[in-house]
């Protein structure tokens, strides 16, 4: 059974030690550069000089490569094929498959878009692998994000696996009453009510009790909240964020100027 829904891996690395907001800005910078910098090879280069080095710096190279092989590369590969075949640009046909044409222009176009997706998903993956969700939320709350908002995000991440476990118990309880969930589609559709009814009712009770429990612990107190963990935000992080911001502005600016 899953204990929680999180990709975070506890390690001690340069990337782990960065302030969560810095990491968030870094992630957005990589994505925006890949999409806006007006040079064809930008996303390809970013993979080589940023994404892969960062996965090494974050000591999550192995986990990152596993995700890349299982998810990022297949998805980007699929996108590449779709666009290379179906993008109606160019005349220089280099490959034909029945009525589908692949032109050198469409291949170049598809290649860049696929790499942009690789950069985007990779950047997010690295962010999730090296950032603890509660650290991110504490930091954002400290910077003015409403506490209730942060609470909803974190508790949803944690409570979803519990709801799935509960759904499993309900299925077991109804199968014990002779409910056939394993045969025809019609029968399965008919068995939805006995499964969803208790789940919804149970969740309503849970939500009410949880609201009482956190209220009893001062959740809506008007005091200024403190935080158990200190989340450091040294000058280095602050400067890095400025540098990244300038990069974003330059990239978008060049993009607008050249277009």
């Amino acid at each position: 059974m899953h204990e929680r829904l999180s990709f975070h891996i506890q390690r001690d690395s340069f990337l782990h030690r960065l302030n969560p907001l810095t990491k968030l800005v870094l992630t957005l910078t990589l994505i925006l550069l890949a999409f806006t910098f007006p040079w064809y090879w930008t996303p390809h280069l970013l993979v080589l000089i940023a994404v892969i080095p960062l996965s090494l710096l974050g000591k999550v190279f192995r986990e990152f490569m596993l995700t890349a092989l299982r998810l990022i590369i297949p998805a980007a590969g699929f996108l590449f094929l779709m666009q290379a075949f179906f993008q109606p640009i160019g005349t220089d046909i280099i490959f034909q498959f029945y009525f589908l044409d692949m032109t050198s222009e469409s291949v170049l176009f598809a290649f860049r878009n696929a790499m942009r997706i690789v950069v985007m998903v990779s950047a997010f993956t690295l962010f999730l692998l090296t950032t603890h969700p509660s650290e991110l939320m504490s930091d954002l709350t400290r910077r003015g994000l409403p506490g209730q908002f942060a609470y909803v995000i974190i508790s949803t991440l944690q409570i979803l696996p519990q709801i799935m476990a509960k759904a499993q118990t309900i299925i077991s309880a109804q199968r014990s009453r002779g409910l056939d969930t394993e045969s025809s589609f019609l029968k399965r559709a008919g068995s939805l009510i006995p499964l969803i009814g208790p789940l919804v009712f149970g969740s309503l009770v849970e939500v009410e009790e949880r609201a009482i429990a956190i209220e009893a612990r001062g959740f809506t107190s008007k005091h200024v909240k403190t935080s158990l963990h200190e989340i450091p935000d040294p000058t280095f992080d602050k400067s890095l964020r400025w540098v990244l911001l300038i990069l974003i502005i330059i990239s978008i600016g060049l993009n607008l100027w050249l277009s």
Partner: peptide
């Protein structure tokens, strides 16, 4: 149903109420 859901360890869970009422770290 009394677990806040906002915390990942027992230690943090118990500290939750103190954070809310602003007790110094």
């Amino acid at each position: 149903n009394q677990i806040s859901g906002a915390k990942y360890t027992v230690f943090e869970e118990i500290a939750f109420g103190l954070e809310n009422i602003g007790v110094p770290r």
